Amino acid sequence: MHAQIILFDGFDPLDVVAPYEVLYAGGTASGGAVSVELVSAEGPRDVVSGTGGLVLRATAALDPARAGLILVPGASGRVGEPGEVPEHDAVAGAWQQDEFIPVLLGRALTTELPTLLKAARDNPEVTLSAVCGGSLVLAMAGLLEGRYATTHHMGLDMLNATGVHAVSARVVDDGDLVTGAGVTSGLDLGLYLLERMVGPQIAHAVEELFAHERRGTVWRHVGPVPAGF
């Protein structure tokens, strides 16, 4: 399985680094069955995150025709010029402060990213995934209508407003769409993806290596609907 993790200006670092490390470790544990790279819509470039001006390098252009996994992170920080180092971080309160996060996510949609994501969505050999506000990127691009997904708990109403069945769960598996909630859920999402695509023994080995126990039950649209809740 090859995983492409997308970078865009203002991305949230933990949304990227947590699943990257999990998937990379899964590749090592599986003898190379998993590979992972950082990509952008524009191709190789340095990309400035929304937290403290941390820079990560995209080493390739997002390729929607390549089989495997494509993962979209969320955003963090204040609104500035694209590529600009923010003067102040607003990670903890960003959802309340003039809706900085939706603005940053919306800016990502002014690039070629929506076109590339649509091509990936239409590729039967691609599984789309997202952490936190990454689900909103997909939803705002019109790619998740009628699907089941999760995001940061403060963005669930916005997700619903785009025609998505928003689920308050740590990880939601909707077939070729697998999404994670708030930023640290990127660890749980990565581990679940390893279990689903490579096997539980590999996922368990990485879980032990990182001293992290996955939280919550992975939600899927199967089985009876709970009564009395």
Rank of each mutant, 00 (worst) to 15 (best):
M158H: 10
S49I: 06
F100M: 12
F8W: 02
V126Y: 03
L189I: 04
V34L: 13
E145N: 12
N160E: 14
E145T: 15
H88R: 15
A203P: 03
G68P: 10
P102Q: 00
V126E: 07
S135C: 06
E21H: 10
P102F: 03
H212P: 00
G199E: 06
T28G: 07
H152D: 06
I202A: 06
P19E: 09
P224Y: 00
Q4D: 09
L159S: 01
L117D: 02
P224K: 00
A60L: 03
A169C: 13
S76Q: 11
L62G: 10
N123H: 00
L14K: 04
L156T: 02
G50A: 09
D46A: 15
A25L: 13
G175L: 09
D15T: 03
H2R: 15
F100D: 13
G26Q: 00
L194A: 02
A58I: 05
R196A: 14
A181Y: 04
V79K: 06
A205C: 07
D176P: 08
D46T: 05
L23N: 00
L71W: 05
V17G: 03
E21V: 14
R66L: 13
T110N: 07
H153K: 13
V126P: 00
V222Y: 10
S76W: 09
V16C: 06
R107K: 09
V222G: 09
L105I: 14
V131C: 04
A67D: 12
M140W: 10
A92L: 15
G175A: 11
V103N: 01
N160L: 02
V164L: 03
E112H: 11
G93N: 13
A108S: 15
V178C: 10
P124L: 04
F100A: 13
L189M: 13
G180S: 13
W95T: 05
V198S: 01
A227T: 11
A92F: 14
I6T: 04
P82K: 08
V39C: 01
Y20R: 08
L117W: 08
D9T: 08
W219M: 04
V171H: 02
G146C: 14
L138H: 05
R147E: 06
V225F: 10
V39S: 07
V183S: 08
R214E: 01
G83M: 10
T150C: 13
G77K: 07
V126F: 03
Q96E: 10
S30E: 11
R57Q: 14
A161H: 12
A203S: 13
P82D: 07
V47L: 08
T150D: 14
V172A: 10
E213M: 01
R78M: 15
Y192K: 05
S35T: 15
P64K: 11
I5D: 00
L38I: 10
A149I: 08
S35C: 01
A90Q: 14
A58M: 09
S185T: 15
A29Y: 02
G228Y: 02
